[in-house]
């Protein structure tokens, strides 16, 4: 009888949630939890094609209303001035590890070869919305700026702040050079609205929504993101501990 009781109390103790969380806070388990997205990324890349395209939908599939998430209106005076001028004097800064730093106006971006894609946007929270995006492939801009071979990531600096902290994101070169990775200036046949990230937002179609930085002001080729922001490679990664690789 004692062994039955021991077994049952043992199982009972394991099933108590606070006990479980205490285990989760020990160093080995914590480190394990924070290494899983790297493991998942490598495992998925092992069994999938690097260049696989996200599904593209038709106009009939568009969400009737595309939910706005995150910032709706950046608060800075700079942004307000550009917004008032219709972004006529705004420039996209392309820098970091490139041989030819660039400052590109919105009209020049629109004059570059465009890619239009109807894709599904999946938020980390669980909802999805289908929208049509028009923009320029990031790989074109990277080539145009003659990005260094040593660069491992692309950093996006954004105009929206949460408190004092500016939004930013990073993606690796596999996602940066993916044909559907675009800097979009148009959405659903219109000019991109402020709520959805005007003048320019990233689409990284094989990853969750927080990777799709809105209000992109600068693009930088970098070797490491350890020294940027909180060092985890993105605003939500720093602030809330979201995974850097957002493919699942």
């Amino acid at each position: 009888m004692t062994s039955r009781r021991t077994v049952l109390t043992g199982i009972g103790a394991c099933l108590m949630l606070p006990g479980c969380e205490r285990i989760g806070k020990t160093k080995p388990v914590h480190d394990l939890l924070y290494s899983l997205d790297g493991l998942t990324m490598r495992a998925q890349r092992l069994v999938t094609a690097r260049g696989a395209l996200a599904r593209e939908y038709t106009e009939a599939d568009l969400s009737p209303r595309f939910r706005v998430n995150g910032t709706r209106q950046p608060a800075s005076a700079d942004y307000a001035r550009h917004q008032k001028e219709g972004f006529a004097n705004w420039r996209l800064n392309v820098g970091g590890m490139v041989r030819r730093p660039l400052q590109i106006s919105l009209s020049d971006l629109r004059a570059m070869p465009t890619r239009t894609q109807i894709t599904r946007h999946d938020c980390v929270e669980g909802w999805s919305a289908i929208g049509q995006w028009t923009g320029v492939q990031l790989s074109r801009i990277l080539d145009f700026a003659r990005v260094s071979e040593r660069a491992k990531y692309v950093l996006f600096r954004c105009a929206d702040n949460y408190g004092d902290t500016p939004y930013y994101e990073t993606v690796d070169m596999i996602e940066a050079r993916h044909p559907q990775t675009i800097l979009a200036w148009g959405m659903n046949g219109d000019i991109l609205s402020v709520a959805h990230g005007a003048p320019l937002r990233l689409r990284s179609e094989r990853q969750l929504g927080y990777k799709h930085a809105k209000y992109v002001m600068g693009v930088e080729a970098i070797e490491s993101f350890a020294e940027i922001g909180g060092g985890k490679g993105g605003f939500w990664e720093d602030r809330s501990g979201y995974d850097w690789w957002a493919g699942i």
């Binding site: 998925q44 069994v47 999938t48 094609a49 696989a52 395209l53 996200a54 599904r55 599904r120 999946d122 179609e205 094989r206 990853q207 969750l208 493919g247 699942i248």
Partner: peptide, 10 residues
């Protein structure tokens, strides 16, 4: 539910 798997295995 993984967008990366969706691309590879639609």
């Amino acid at each position: 539910m993984s967008p990366n798997m969706n691309a590879a295995w639609p």
